[in-house]
Design a protein around this nucleic acid. Structure first.
Length: 139
DNA sequence: GCCAACGTTGGC
DNA sequence: GCCAACGTTGGC
């Protein structure tokens, strides 16, 4: 299973909003970046991801999973742009901050720390496991 | 609120 | 096909 990271600004779309959608999840619309789109095209059902707050918060907040494969973004003006649907799996009791990630030798090579602008990015198994451990989340 | 980093656009 | 100009993202 592949692991990913989805970014959102809390005042644009919060983790609580995603949780409120339950099993139905939410179409992850609005991505207008080729790298991010390509990452979503690679996703498979039940792939998991971190939900990260950019700008305000700057921390990994929760765990999500892919519940619908890539399809044309219903908000896009042309079919170039695709997205997956995701749903909330669990909120992390302990958030893992960007600061921690940058300071941690095991995490500082993460895409999040190296290319802060990519809004949908891959996470390695090692990174995934380490962040889950820091968050007190049993994989 | 500023600005660095990155991506995209368009003139040549 | 190069690159300057511009727009956007997101950390600080």
């Amino acid at each position: 299973m592949a692991r990913w990271l989805f970014k959102s600004e809390p005042n644009v779309y919060s983790f609580a909003q995603l949780q409120a959608r339950g099993q139905a999840g939410e179409e992850w619309t609005g991505i207008r970046n080729y790298q991010a789109r390509n990452n979503m095209r690679l996703m498979k059902l039940a792939d998991q991801g971190f939900f990260y707050y950019s700008n305000e918060g700057k921390a990994v907040m929760g765990i999500v999973e892919v519940c619908k494969l890539a399809h044309v973004d219903s908000t896009a003006e042309n079919p170039t742009w695709e997205c997956v649907d995701i749903r909330a799996v669990a909120a992390l009791a302990r958030h893992v901050t960007l600061d921690e990630i940058k300071q941690d030798p095991k995490l500082k090579a993460m895409v999040l720390a190296v290319n802060s602008r990519l809004s949908v990015q891959p996470v390695t198994d090692a990174e995934w496991n380490h962040i889950c451990k820091l968050a007190g989340y049993a994989v």
